[in-house]
């Protein structure tokens, strides 16, 4: 029976081995080599085995690590805020009547449906200090907001991230809320607890597991953030340098400089950091990922 049970997983793991593990092993191998030129540099390259040299270089790469630090700081601030907004939204939806909730849920999911490229098209316009509507809007309140300026850049990126991810996070948390049998709340109500109190003391703890999941996905996604800062690169190139985030640095090495070996080593370092961060988060929230 165990064997038959295991056979359900066979098709997936065959494909997984071919399309994920194989390229990973190839990349791992490449991270141990280095291409060297000679003379004027036009004579072709020789490829040598250099062991862990690329990793040593990567661990000392100040620009890579400052990118990492920058993004980690951003994640530490933005993720809790976005999670908070998602939970708040899910609680609002949960407090509304079923029919109203159904309507709103669909509307709130629209940003999740908007493809990244279209979202970028929209926000380039909205943020534009020259033609966009947001700068004059904030001016009404006496705020001079230039979304492309260096000081605003993280707020602009964070807002874009929030806009496109709150809907999905809300969906998961809301679904978890709906799965709780309402009887649980009734006794609290009989005891005279207010709706606010029920929300914070009973509902939020009940959806903690869903929150852990969405948080970990956000951590993974944020540390690998790429396309959002790329959007801002052309707007504030003096702030968003080509190695502004770890993935941007890796892309720069691999695709604009052709140093794939070093880029592979940096990717592996990044994966390790992301893994450690996620594991730490799980440890802190006291919940192991595998069961």
């Amino acid at each position: 029976m165990a064997l038959k049970g295991a056979s359900f997983t066979v098709p997936f793991f065959l494909g997984f081995a071919l399309f994920t593990v194989t390229p990973m092993v190839m990349a791992l191998k490449q991270s141990l080599y280095k291409a060297q030129s000679s003379g004027l540099g036009f004579g072709g390259k020789t490829i040598q085995f250099v062991g862990l040299d690329n990793f040593v270089q990567g661990l000392q790469d100040i620009r890579f690590w400052s990118a990492m630090g920058r993004v980690a700081l951003f994640a530490a601030i933005a993720i809790p805020l976005i999670q908070l907004a998602s939970v708040g939204l899910a609680l609002l939806l949960d407090a509304a009547s079923q029919r109203l909730a159904d309507r709103f849920r669909l509307l709130l999911l629209v940003p999740f449906m908007i493809p990244g490229i279209v979202a970028i098209l929209i926000w380039i316009y909205l943020y534009s200090p020259v033609v966009g509507p947001l700068t004059p809007f904030f001016r009404l309140f006496g705020i001079e907001a230039d979304f492309y300026s260096g000081s605003m850049i993280w707020i602009s990126i964070g807002n874009l991230m929030a806009w496109s991810s709150i809907g999905f996070n809300m969906l998961i948390v809301y679904a978890a809320l709906r799965a709780v049998p309402p009887e649980i709340y009734d006794s609290a109500r009989i005891d005279g607890a207010s709706e606010w109190r029920i929300a914070w003391s009973i509902k939020v703890p009940l959806v903690r597991r869903s929150l852990v999941l969405t948080s970990v996905l956000s951590i993974i996604g944020t540390l690998q953030i790429f396309s959002d800062p790329m959007l801002f690169r052309s707007m504030t190139p003096e702030t968003v340098t080509r190695d502004f985030t770890p993935i941007m640095a890796i892309y720069d090495w691999a695709f604009s400089q052709g140093e794939f070996n070093y880029a592979a080593a940096l990717s592996i370092i990044l994966a390790l950091v992301v893994g450690t961060a996620s594991a730490l988060f799980y440890r802190l929230t006291n919940k192991a990922p595998t069961s």
């Binding site: 990973m24 993935i247 880029a263």
Partner: peptide
């Protein structure tokens, strides 16, 4: 595999 950056796998 959630943790692996996509950039790593493109060329391989």
């Amino acid at each position: 595999s959630f943790l692996v950056p996509g950039a790593l796998l493109t060329i391989p």
